[in-house]
Amino acid sequence: MPALDALRDRLRASHTLACGASVDSVYSHAAWAAALGGIRMPLLADFNPKGAVAASFGMFLAPAGITDRATVLIDADGVVRHASSVTPAGKRDMDALVKLCEELDASWSGALPAFEDGPGLSAGTELFVKDHCMFSRWSSYVRTNLGLEASLPMTNVTRDPAQGERLAAAGGKNQAPALLHDGTVLYESKDINAFLVERAADRW
């Protein structure tokens, strides 16, 4: 998936939303993507019922309980234009697949709207996290997966307790995770993540 995510500009230009999909949960997806340095394209959790979407495309390998390494290109009218498998052990030619998207888009007669970027984060936005906290980890994964490591400072209040006091002074509570932005503080990881996505994710 990182190899495909790296071709994001070409996919956006050809009005194509690329998605990864496996039977793993969203939490596994987030941790895996962050471990790889961050993945922005959607990684879909075909988790419950396990593999149901893959099965609907004939790409669930029931005996092994996994999906095939297989690719489907669906056009903007919802029609399948390409379907192929390289088997689980195989390797996809991502460049060739993106070329298929470019060819499809070049031949498309209708007008499709362009991708848009979010407005970005205000200067001074800061993420506070603590150790051994799954909520902190969940928000830090979103930061990495949106490519915000350079632009969104992350402060660990376990390792530097004085920073927790600074957080309490700003938002009223020394509780992490927290996101300080635009003079206000969000304390719930669900709200933090939704805010970061709204500001920094692709809009399709």
Binding site: T16, W32, D46, L73, I74
Partner: peptide, 13 residues
């Protein structure tokens, strides 16, 4: 009516 979709199934994270 908005996007083509490239759906890439893979075995496991």
């Amino acid at each position: 009516g908005r996007r083509h979709v490239l759906l890439c199934f893979y075995p496991l994270d």
